[in-house]
């Protein structure tokens, strides 16, 4: 086609300009930081209004204000701190026991071919068992005391930590090991100075999964057989139909979970400064 042929009546060239803009912009929409607290406030306000004007009965879903009130009451009587303290002690001990043995066993399985051959099939068989199912058995073995809760939590946390540690140790970048050996590192140095630090980020991934699971199993164990603790408290008040106090327990669990995961993030930042940007 001859370009000169295409003319409009004004004599200007009829070809038009088509500009090219990024077509990815629809994916790049950003949101301001203040939107998060505002969003939560809006949700709370709607909740308060819906229950306040009686659309939903306070007996089914207490308003945020009612929950806070109930919480204060429980603080005054002292039951809140007692239950929270009991739960915290269980989760802390159970988590430490489970995570600690998970890391140690994971390192052993990752190193020794014999224990790997024997241990991995065993671990694979035990891992999928819902630890809830063995709570009665554990109570039968060691009684319904504190220890049974701690052991159940430990059993739940153990496996994700064990598997992440094991695979991290097995999959250490061989070029790092070669470098260490080339510069004269002994077997011991390779383990402590190369394999363990290299495995830490993956171990932390297991620790984070374990933290979430520990909260879940804590509540379950406390509901099955405990006098005190957040789980027991929730069960007790729901059988009394005191939904405001039930929700105090639920809110506490949410806070506990947040603290756990934030704490791990902080610990990771502190232990693995080379991972953070």
């Amino acid at each position: 086609m001859k370009t000169d042929d295409v003319k409009t009546t004004q004599g200007r060239n009829a070809f038009e300009r088509t500009e090219i803009h990024s077509r990815m912009r629809f994916l790049e929409k950003s949101a301001p930081r203040w939107i998060a607290p505002v969003g939560i406030l809006v949700i709370l306000a709607v909740w308060q209004t819906v229950t306040g004007i009686g659309w939903v009965s306070e007996a089914d879903l207490p308003s945020p204000v009612a929950i806070v009130k109930a919480g204060f009451e429980m603080v005054k009587t002292g039951e809140l701190w007692m239950n929270v303290g009991t739960s915290l002690a269980r989760i802390a001990l159970g988590y430490l026991l489970g995570a600690g043995s998970g890391v140690i066993l994971g390192v052993i399985l990752g190193f020794s071919r014999i224990s790997e051959r024997v241990g991995i099939p065993v671990a694979n068989a035990l891992y999928p068992i819902p630890k809830l199912a063995i709570i009665p058995l554990i109570i039968l073995w060691i009684g319904a005391g504190e220890l049974s809760k701690i052991v159940v939590i430990a059993a739940e946390v153990l496996f994700p930590v064990l598997f992440s540690t094991y695979s991290a140790v097995r999959n250490t970048d061989p070029s790092l090991i070669r470098a260490a050996v080339a510069f004269g590192a002994t077997r011991r140095t390779v383990i402590t100075r190369v394999i363990v630090p290299a495995a830490l980020p993956t171990i932390f991934a297991g620790l984070r999964i374990g933290a979430g699971l520990s909260l879940l199993i804590l509540v379950a164990a406390e509901m099955i057989g405990a006098q005190h603790g957040i789980g027991a408290m929730i069960l007790q008040y729901s059988s009394l139909m005191m939904t405001d106090k039930v929700l105090v327990g639920v809110v506490l669990l949410s806070i506990l979970g947040l603290i756990l995961s934030r704490g791990l993030v902080q610990l990771e930042r502190w232990l693995l400064p080379w991972k953070s940007e």
Binding site: S175, R178, A179, A180, A182, P197, A198, W274
Partner: peptide
């Protein structure tokens, strides 16, 4: 020894 992939310890 110097390695192709530098093999520095990231930590």
């Amino acid at each position: 020894m110097v390695f192709q992939d530098h093999a520095l310890f990231p930590w």
